[in-house]
Amino acid sequence: MSLSEIEATTESEQLEQPAGNLRKEAWKRLRRDPVALVGFGLIAFFVLVAILAPLIAPYAPDAQPGRGMITPTNIPGPSADHWFGLDASGRDEFSRVVYGARQSLLVGVVATLIGMAGGLSLGVLAGAFGGKVDAVIMRIVDVMLSIPGLLMAIAIAALLGASLWSVMIAIAIINIPVFARLLRGQMLAQRGSDYVVAAVSIGVRRRPIVLGHILPNSISPVIVQATLTLATAIIEAAGLSFLGLGSADPRVPEWGRMLADTQRYLASAPHLAFFPGIAIVIAALGFTMLGERLREAIDPKYRR
């Protein structure tokens, strides 16, 4: 109440600023936010590592420079030659973690995009039409949500056979209902708002109302959710690979798979669990930090 008065007194100053829109303002806030910047930095770091992997990694991911030095009881840890140590097959752990960034980001991004596309389609249908269409779509979504996510992902991935694609599709599918629900809720809320009623009263057709007004005003939380989903997708991908449902190709290292391979040597070579584990945590943390702050920058409720 007091704050609204303060807002009012400062409004005239805003008027003097050059024309800008809400997105620009959100962007401005985000650029000044240290947490968002750290998150963004972490993500940029991983993207760079993934792209430049061949330049950064001293060895190919399937090369075995330390083959002779390995026995099941002696797996050398970090050293000057091998920063992250060697793995049980004598491969350079650092190179494998670096190459692993490619898989994690790829799975995360593709799975999120597919899930978002699926969720958005369902959400738009439900939110735009309401009524029976809405009821049917939402019942399907409810059923999907009632099955534990990881369990369903395991089932889907197992059904499709162990491969990178089946991991991506499995993760995409379990994220569809999240996006569908979110978008539908947003759209239904917008549908009753005055400016939509205004558009109807002017005589704007349904399609431009949905695509031109309702959707753009509903999409911000979806973008936030996508950023956060990226984080969980990376973790879920690692989980599925850990369970042996990911790609079995040794030339394509994957952090979850690396963790799984480590199980037997955990006591003698803890570094094999430590480095991929840390990589997963930091990558997920980067997306989470950015996503949370993005939400605060975009959501009007967090303003002031």
Binding site: L22, S193, Y195, H213
Partner: peptide, 12 residues
């Protein structure tokens, strides 16, 4: 409308 802010699409 009563509330001029709510009756205008903020992105338009």
């Amino acid at each position: 409308f009563q509330d001029p802010m709510a009756s205008l699409d903020p992105r338009q």
